[in-house]
Design a protein around this nucleic acid. Structure first.
Lengths: 353, 353
DNA sequence: GTTAGCACTCTCAACCTTCAAGTGCTAACG
DNA sequence: CGTTAGCACTTGAAGGTTGAGAGTGCTAAC
């Protein structure tokens, strides 16, 4: 069976209406509020057909229809209408980003907060983690007991530190020496090339071979986001949405957000594909849990990854609002960071709209 | 009215029973299960009297009695019986701590996880933050745009970093120069004395005055724990306890744990007073929210603060279990860290038991 | 001081009724 | 053939009633 235009129109009405009201949608309100000129009986026929196609479900015979996950996906792909932010929302974004004094950590937090406040959903964010990031400084500090602390600072000011094992025989002076050598070797290198640089230099390091191995291992872990890089804002906002009157849904939600590992996994894995990604849980072994939806955007400016930001919430989510907010925050962010001019990527994206 | 021994005994029974069953306690079960030789009518008289004293409340006439916050406090002070951990629990602790390879961050996380797993409550932890910590390394890195990154590494391997403003006129070489001066000045100093050292050296710094100011400001913030220092484990464990079938309690709980600031404040403020602290919310403007209880222990070994760890959960908490776990974790932790010998503090504590 | 006995209160679950909402189906219409 | 009016049917939500069970407070007797 093909989807007629009227079916699409009706499906769009159902999704819109349900997103707004959180109440199953009946044929009557569709016909009366949105589709004058057609009777509710006709709408009922169409609804029955849409149900057969898998787009709608009903809890019980007299309960109106509710969109299925499949319907949401279709809605986002084809039916959804883009909106614009209100003046006050735009002002809010601008004001929030006007304070340029903070570091990245601070920026990530405020972006996350802005998104959560404007959308009224829980916001998840993961800071920039870019393999092409240049190493700005690398220092090795002796800790005694055959261990040393490796501190790496990159161009976008992300600080990474980890402990590596070193030969017990190394004195503090040896460590300092090694530190100098390492700093010289890696300074200005991108994280992506650093590993190969390290491998190549292994031979030179002679007795410090073990140290270099440790550094290389540490570098490997740096391209993956860590727990600490995941920022979560407005977890209590979920209670503003009626689906979370049900304790089961709250459990589900809390089990997701209490594991930052899991969040990082969910957000991270399509990091460099597209701009905005929507993931809807359908329950059958999906990574995103049932009754849960995750909308994220990955931002970039001047070819530099600026991190991934988004919201997590019920499937019945105001996608128009969320996506609009994400787009506007993205624009503001790109302006803020790459204020000097726009690169090709961004131009392409703007034409798409 | 004075508390007779029998009243105390009965109060203890009520609290124990309620903690175990989560069901209001009736005079009948007290008399039959715990106080043979006395009739339920007698118990009823005592219960009525205990209610008058403010230790018990009842939701409705025929609903049995429930301990008041005041009763819990009294219970913990005087009535509670110390327990011992099971073999398997002790094994679990030992196994969890046997891996010594990780850094502090890692240690904090595993301690927190152990506590959460053994108690079945949500665990909160805050890493060591000790004013007497010695500065091991201090480096200033230029970031351009009149800003620099200050990295401070302390003895117990806590890494602190923050951005400070510097005069736009400073070149990279100037920054390096300043970094060397600062490192020399602060190396080996405790955080507590560092501030005064900085103040005294202000004059010497001449044109770098602003830099030194920034460093001093940064040092000030280091004694307070930051958001990132608060670790939360097992948030979803609350659903194992019947009070959180009620959505209102979940809201309450989530609003606390979603703000790490607030947690830090709650945990941090009696940091150096006593070993184990129990805070019970009573609702009247208390810092700890109503229906919420916070049990924390501050650990130390060799005079060094090892952080504060504990659990947050419903008032009806298994205090015996929680406190026993906290004590045993503390012992294990002290052994692990200060394996070379026990200092006076710890000996004192062990005698108290 | 302790106890048995009893009236009283309150909740909880089960059950019924009513009500409104919304559907599916059928037969008629253009 | 698509559309529509009409109507029977289903279902859940809300409200009321009832009986059982639990637990108490009180009183009078020991």
């Amino acid at each position: 069976m093909k989807m007629s235009d009227r079916k699409k129109k009706i499906l769009q009405i159902v999704v819109d209406e349900y997103i707004n009201s959180a109440v199953p949608v009946s044929s009557k309100v569709i016909a009366e509020k949105h589709l004058q000129g057609v009777s509710s009986a006709t709408v009922r026929n169409e609804l029955a057909s849409l149900e057969e196609l898998g787009y709608l479900t009903q809890f019980h015979t007299s309960g109106g229809r509710v969109p299925s996950p499949q319907a949401y996906r279709f809605y986002i792909e084809e039916l959804m209408q883009r909106g614009n932010l209100s003046e006050s929302d735009l002002d809010y974004i601008e004001k929030a980003f006007s304070d340029r004094s903070g570091d990245v950590e601070h920026l990530i937090k405020s972006v996350s907060k802005v998104i959560s406040d404007l959308t009224d959903y829980t916001s998840v964010a993961i800071g920039p983690h870019d393999d092409e990031e240049k190493i700005r400084n690398l220092t090795l500090l002796s800790c005694g007991e055959g261990r040393a602390l490796l501190v790496i600072v990159t161009g976008s000011r992300i600080l990474r530190d980890s402990f590596i094992d070193i030969p017990e025989s190394m004195t503090d002076a040896d460590v300092e020496n090694a530190s100098r050598m390492l700093a010289k070797l890696f300074d200005g290198k991108a994280l992506s090339e650093a590993r190969t640089v390290g491998e190549e230099a292994l031979a030179e390091f002679g007795q410090y071979r073990q140290v270099m191995r440790g550094v290389i291992d540490a570098l490997k872990t740096y391209t993956r986001p860590r727990d600490e890089d995941v920022v979560l804002t407005g977890a209590d906002k979920i209670f503003n949405h009626p689906e979370y009157e049900d304790i089961e849904n709250v459990k589900n939600f809390l089990s997701v957000i209490s594991s930052k590992d899991k969040i990082a996994e969910l957000i991270g894995d399509d990091n460099d594909e597209i701009q905005i990604s929507v993931k809807i849980g359908s329950g059958d072994g999906d990574e995103v849990p049932e009754d849960c939806s995750l909308v994220t955007a990955t931002y970039a400016a001047g070819g530099k990854n600026l991190g991934t930001y988004g919201v997590i919430g019920p499937i019945r989510m105001d996608y128009t609002k969320v996506i609009t907010v994400l787009e506007n925050v993205g624009k503001a962010l790109e302006e803020l960071v790459g204020s000097r001019g726009k690169d090709k990527d961004e131009k392409d994206r703007q034409q798409d709209e």
